[in-house]
Design a protein around this nucleic acid. Structure first.
Lengths: 235, 235
DNA sequence: ACCTGAACACCGTTCAAGT
DNA sequence: ACCTGAACACCGTTCAAGT
């Protein structure tokens, strides 16, 4: 068992801990992630991590913050394209680390390591679109919710019971549907199987909902355009 | 310490366990919730619960399923009103049990106790609106994501560090903003303080975002109307 | 059928003590 | 400043044993 000495020159540091933690989450998933496993992987006592982070929540916030730095697109002259880029960037980032999806959604609400630049970007885009005052705040909230909502669901954890049993179970229950009780679902099932929330058995990591996401973004943008038209010429 | 005998006539049952668990989550919050505390509250050994539920995840799914039964509005002749009712019902349910918000969002994706009637309702409303084929599936996914996304963020857990320290901290950081770096945020801060995601320090349980939610729902509906117009007369 | 009682393999966090 | 080493108070889950 040749392993590096406990006090190697590059022993511990915030970035080394965060990298290791992210790698563990990517490989083994969020449910089985723990502070003690990070310590073990770094060949260090669990308590050692507490010199660099006050607690587990701070470590998790650090991971999310590290991811957020790669999130900002550039401003163009087309606010609709800017929004598309924003949504696309967010989804791309999660797609590279799908196991992080629940954390990001949660941390973005309650973020200890907030990046104001993200808020500023969204506001700038919406101001360019023509929003102001309370409508601007409303549009901002809608954009943030829209950006995180779809992707959090898409890449959210599905039951991990070896994944096989549960997948077969839901497929079986879908095949047993009674067209008299749920006629629409029975009718459109072929199109919805594994392609829609609640009626799928794989998550976005293995079965991405690309066209649905595109539709979702378009719908939000079209909705915002309608809101602009409303406020410009109030009836 | 007068407490009921261990084998009281109404000892254990699925519904009694679920009620107790929901009450504990309502009172103490999701982070401090545990299977062992449910057992303690019911005056029973932890292992006893395993006769009624195979594991913790199943118990949590049971709680969410119990909530979902109160979720279905009635179909009217106006699909836009139907969607508004659907969104409103969902938010009302979460508002009564805000600590459940993260669980519901997660379980709805990966639900062991799916209610197909919910899926059927959304499909029926969208069919009435005029959607079909792949556009129907896309619209369905957009509605599900929109329904859960906003509310999950609105009532999502904020840092629980006695709540006071963190709240003061973020307010202070907001006041230290540099208008040269984040001009829009600095300009609109008075309107956004505690009223917008990321720039608030209270969650929806104490500071509901009513008008923002209404705007969000309207935006989605307007967006869906635009999508309908697209597919009816493709350019 | 339904629960006890004890054990197992984990957690996050604290703290004196080392270097 | 940075980490060891051990302890504390928890977890979810399993399983033989009781009734």
């Amino acid at each position: 068992m040749a392993r590096p000495p406990l006090h190697s020159p590059s022993s511990l540091s915030k970035s080394r801990i965060l990298e290791c933690a992210l790698q563990l989450i990517d490989e083994d998933g969020l449910p089985s992630f723990s502070l003690r496993k990070v310590a073990k992987a770094l060949n260090v006592y669990p308590a050692a991590l507490y010199w660099h982070f006050p607690n587990l929540a701070a470590l998790q916030a650090g991971i999310v913050a590290h991811l957020q730095t790669t999130l900002l697109p550039l401003l163009s002259e087309n606010w609709q394209q800017d929004l598309k880029n924003l949504f696309q960037n967010y989804r791309d980032a999660i797609q590279q680390h799908p196991n992080l999806a629940p954390l990001v959604g949660a941390q973005l609400t309650a973020n200890a390591a907030v990046e104001w630049s993200q808020v500023e970007f969204i506001l700038q885009v919406l101001v360019n679109a023509g929003f102001k005052e309370k409508a601007l705040v409303n549009a901002y909230n809608t954009v943030v919710a829209g950006m995180t909502g779809f992707v959090t669901l898409e890449f959210g954890q599905l039951p991990a019971d070896e994944e096989e049993d549960w997948a077969k179970d839901i497929q079986q229950r879908l095949n047993l549907l009674d067209a008299k009780i749920t006629p629409q679902l029975a009718k459109w099932l072929p199109l919805m199987k594994n392609q829609a929330f609640i009626t799928r058995w794989q998550n976005g990591a293995t079965q991405p909902l690309d066209t649905a996401f595109e539709f979702h973004v378009d719908t939000l943008i079209e909705g915002l355009k309608a809101q602009l038209a409303r406020s410009e010429q109030p009836q």
